[in-house]
Design a protein around this nucleic acid. Structure first.
Lengths: 111, 111
DNA sequence: CAATCATATCGTATATCGACGATAAACAAT
DNA sequence: ATTGTTTATCGTCGATATACGATATGATTG
């Protein structure tokens, strides 16, 4: 089932880069890409990037979607690590996870 | 249904950039991201990037998937424009569409 | 023309997505 | 405690993704 042929990539372009098996690498990028594979999630990410933080309710207001739907998208973004949510009283304050964002950008840039 | 609030973005960072409505922008990135939202497709793209071109059969050999499944992934990559296929006798020679690739990288980098 | 090779498409099964309304859960305030 | 506010979760439904084997298509070769 698992590819035996899989070997460490010789993709040493300059500095650190990835000494990860091709398959793992692909899965990581696929996961992060998938987080952005829906327009609503892209817009949420952009919205969060335009502010330092954002209450969940504000996000819902900006989107032409039901609150429950937005909540689901946020859940996905949290699961992939792109977004963090911090409970603040009865609300939740969402913000971008910068390191995950950086990772995504690197993975794409190094494609 | 469609967001009326949508307005042209003032995202003039340097050169051309996008004078596209937020929604359209999000859809473009979502589409391209979706193309990479599966490990098999990421690996296909990486494989094609590591060579200047690649016969379909070679791709199938590298993947732990049935030929028909690989063909479907290639179809998706073609539809999103990331990959081009050129018929070469009885085979098909696939290669990366550099401009689409550049576009994806820009969209991500400008996130 | 027949046979072969490479690739695409079809048909099908299963799983997951994406949307919604309804409801639950957590907290604040009265 | 009750009420109201905010967010998450549940249940459901239709649509789509993903995988495969079987079959069709298209080109080359004998």
């Amino acid at each position: 089932m698992v590819r035996v042929k899989t070997v460490v990539q010789k993709c040493v372009t300059s500095s650190e880069k990835f000494a990860l098996p091709d398959v793992v690498w692909a899965e990581e990028l696929a996961k992060l890409s998938w987080a952005l594979a829906h327009p609503a999630r892209v817009r949420i990410v952009r919205l969060l990037l335009s502010r330092t933080s954002c209450m969940c309710g504000e996000i819902v207001e900006e989107m032409p979607l039901a609150q429950s739907t937005v909540s689901q998208h946020l859940k996905i973004l949290k699961e992939t690590g792109l977004v963090q949510g911090e409970i603040d009283g009865p609300r939740v304050c969402y913000c971008i996870n910068k390191s995950a964002m950086t990772k995504l950008k690197k993975l794409i840039a190094n494609l």
